[in-house]
Design a protein around this nucleic acid. Sequence first.
DNA 1: GGAAGTCCTTGATCTGTATCAAATCATACG
DNA 2: CGTATGATTTGATACAGATCAAGGACTTCC
Lengths: 279, 279
Amino acid sequence: MFSVSDPRTNRCFHETEYETFGLTEINDVASLIIQISLMHAKQSAAASPTSIVFTGATAPVASLGANKATHLRLQALTRYVGARSGDSRVTDNSASQVVLVVDGAVKLIASASAGRTQVMGFYFKDDFIYVPARETHAYNLCALKDCELVAFPATEFIRLAQSDKTLNNNFLSHLLRALSRCREKSLALGQKTARERVATFLVSMAERIGAPFSNGALLDLPMSRRDIGDNIGLTIETVSRQMTELRNAGLVSTSGRSQVKILDLAALKQEAGHLSGLS
Amino acid sequence: MFSVSDPRTNRCFHETEYETFGLTEINDVASLIIQISLMHAKQSAAASPTSIVFTGATAPVASLGANKATHLRLQALTRYVGARSGDSRVTDNSASQVVLVVDGAVKLIASASAGRTQVMGFYFKDDFIYVPARETHAYNLCALKDCELVAFPATEFIRLAQSDKTLNNNFLSHLLRALSRCREKSLALGQKTARERVATFLVSMAERIGAPFSNGALLDLPMSRRDIGDNIGLTIETVSRQMTELRNAGLVSTSGRSQVKILDLAALKQEAGHLSGLS
DNA sequence: GGAAGTCCTTGATCTGTATCAAATCATACG
DNA sequence: CGTATGATTTGATACAGATCAAGGACTTCC
């Protein structure tokens, strides 16, 4: 029904196909989800810094805001994926997928030839991700820490969304936000200097996962310098140098590898090349 | 009801707000659309190399595939925009817009501080464009040649799409394609060399507006070298040099400023850094 | 709590593309 | 048709960020 840890790769996938289940077996499916999620929570309890909590079998799709009927049909489609930190190829890429992050953090990576990879984006709790099938380039999801994810085949998800306005709206607004963010990234990659890119990245992270703090924010970055570099089109060395400069300029302070304290968010936005004084 | 040419700027906007019209006045609106489109067709007949044809007042929204009722309500929302080549600020950016290209070619530009602009994309006949309201950066549509466009306020367009599956589907699939293309661009901007970017651009254009030709395609590029450079994050000089190298390598040939003949599309895709040998 | 390994930072040098400058070409206009 | 004008191409140089190299710090695991 599901695969367990592979000791050779130290990777652990739990994938369960529910697509073949009829709706009459929904109770079995529901209990199975609980079973798996609890098992996974147990497995990763020691390794994961964040506790994994499910309020019940309906938790994964509850945030989609779907009505009861849609809800049940969604569950029938659900491919539940629990991923351990560092897992790549969380989804198979032979068909487009819609993935919902229930908990944790993932990166979406695209591969060009010659092994170069671009991190298309980072995604956190409640984010939707559209993962296209392999085409001119290959896309893969990769867990940054222990994750709870729910994946749906894109075509069937969209078909289902047609009969549920809330779900459709939810999906649409997430897509529009994804498009806007992707365009912001294009602007950064095409026009901005290294300094501006790093500042832009920090501002974006502050807005998405930062805890408010004085005039700035507290950040606990789940991704490595390499991930950051691959995301904003810089090498790790350049990212590091720019962080140092921002620290010397008194805009941020750091402690350890992942803790970043943004001391002056407004000034950082200025560094990021954002438009000021909206008319 | 609409503004005419401004001799100082040599720009010509025709914008008509139908939002205040009630549905009972739909006939007036319909005839007005005909009137304006004909007038515009006449005005630009000499200047434009392509003839502008409307089969009737319903033509602009017919390609949306909406049912009759949706159709009428769409028309009530329609802000018809005819734009002459070089027009910028085709849409106002105080609110998000959904724009449909009925005919012509436009670019979507984003402005960072310091006057740097990034061309987010080029759009052609039947393309949808989501133009977000001004936020951290300002977005503007700009006509590459004489255009027929139809613009809708985004929020109301989406609300309308909720009650029409075809329209919704249409919009959704266009959004997904836009997201995929934007991600491809991010990959190019973040990881690819100048040579690869130019090749990628040419391949993309061949697929979208190219006429099949032998092992390649015939292209009539409506945009300048500057537009291309701003789109793929290079200067006009670098774009020019790469074009020269591709020409010397026998992959393309050019005549005039806009005519490009792709002689070997497969080889060009190789240059573009696309994945080969899909498994 | 110590060792190992990985990730990060800092320094020196190199390279691809930007920038600056000038010549040439294409297109529109008289 | 020739000419004007802006766009494109070509050449020389400069610089931001990549690459190469080494040292230092944080985690993790025993």
